[in-house]
Simulated assay, not measured.
Amino acid sequence: MYENKQQEKREKNNIQHDEIDLYFIYNKINLFANRIGQKISYFFKLLFIYKWLLILFVLIGGALGYLAFYVTKPYYSSTMTLMLSNIRNEFIEDQLSKLTDMVKEDNFEEIANRLDINLEAAKQIKALNFSNLDEDRIEEDSILVGSPFKIELLLYDRKLFNSMEPAITNYLENNRYFAKQKRIRQKQLESLINKLESEISSIDSIKTEIGSPRGPVNGFVYGQPIDPTNLYRESVNMYKEQVSLSANLDRLENVEVITGFAPRLYPSGPNLIKYILIGAIVSFLFGVIVVLNKARPTK
């Protein structure tokens, strides 16, 4: 009986102690919240007291933003989409990354050399960005091959878009590895086409002999009877294959333009509202710092 009373007394003391701890924590949190609220209230009171000074700072910042917009050279933005042949996309990405780095470093002489354009045209390039359109459509362990690329070009001279399109395409096409592979495929296709032309010519000669014999015709070739129907069918099949190979020869480029750069009439930037807002916000923050220093009590 005595032990039970002692146990109940200890439990009661523990509960009271926990209540005191919770009350102490609550008071600390409440005190901290009150101080924060007072500081916020004091901050907004200062802003109201010095509102005309802050408005002056905002107006000055907006004017400086407008001045920055006025002296900033306008630029034009356009995009083009390229389709690759049977080439791994990472190879093209590496080439475009090198070109992008040269643009960021203002390495205009090397840009002019790589794109085969004059130095003045190279200096008109503000930025070059690219993206792989199918990058999110493949698995992580897969290799992307023959996927389209989107290239965004920012120029100070809008008239240069027409010349930049073939310049960038030729820069990608004339890669030594790509050019070598192109020559190999071209040689293979031309050999096959020449072979087919020779075979078709031979079949046409046989058909002519059968249709208009100039002497005795025994109807056998290499011990086999001649079937004109098979000759015509074989000739048509060969001609279809020749046409297909000729089409592949015409599409031999490693890089093809799907949609080129669109001509632009109006600048893409800079943005007047953005410049004014940034100037006003930065100046307002500077004004707040001045107000806080001004309201700080002196020792």
Rank of each mutant, 00 (worst) to 15 (best):
M1D: 05
E3N: 09
N4W: 12
E8A: 04
N13C: 04
N13E: 11
N13K: 12
N14W: 09
I15T: 12
H17S: 09
Y23Q: 07
I25E: 12
Y26G: 06
Y26M: 02
I29V: 08
F32K: 00
N34C: 02
G37C: 10
K39C: 00
K39I: 01
K39L: 01
S41H: 13
F44E: 08
K45L: 14
L54P: 12
L54N: 02
I55V: 15
L59G: 05
I60Y: 06
G62Q: 08
G65P: 03
Y66A: 04
L67M: 04
V71K: 01
T72Y: 12
Y75P: 03
S78K: 05
E93S: 01
E93Q: 01
K98N: 14
E105R: 02
D106V: 00
E109Y: 15
E109V: 00
E110Y: 13
I111A: 08
A112N: 00
R114Q: 05
R114V: 03
D116Q: 14
N118P: 02
N118S: 02
E120V: 01
Q124V: 00
L128P: 10
N129P: 00
N132C: 01
L133M: 14
S142F: 11
G146F: 13
S147M: 01
P148V: 09
E152N: 10
L160F: 11
N162I: 12
N162C: 13
M164F: 06
A167D: 04
I168K: 01
T169Y: 10
N170S: 07
L172D: 09
L172P: 07
N174L: 12
N174R: 11
N174M: 13
N175V: 05
N175H: 11
Y177I: 11
R183P: 01
Q186P: 01
L189F: 09
L189Y: 15
S191W: 13
E199I: 11
I200N: 11
I200C: 06
S201N: 14
I203N: 14
I210L: 02
S212D: 03
P213R: 00
G215M: 10
V217I: 02
N218S: 00
F220K: 11
Q224D: 14
Q224P: 12
L231Q: 10
Y232T: 10
V236E: 15
E241A: 11
E241M: 15
Q242V: 07
L245K: 07
R251L: 07
E256M: 03
V257F: 08
V257E: 12
I258G: 01
T259S: 14
T259F: 12
F261T: 03
P263Q: 14
L265Y: 15
P267A: 06
P267G: 08
N271W: 08
I273A: 09
Y275A: 04
A280L: 06
S283I: 09
L285Q: 02
L285T: 05
G287F: 05
G287Y: 05
V288K: 03
V288I: 07
I289P: 01
I289Q: 02
V290T: 15
V291R: 01
R296M: 00
T298M: 11
K299W: 11
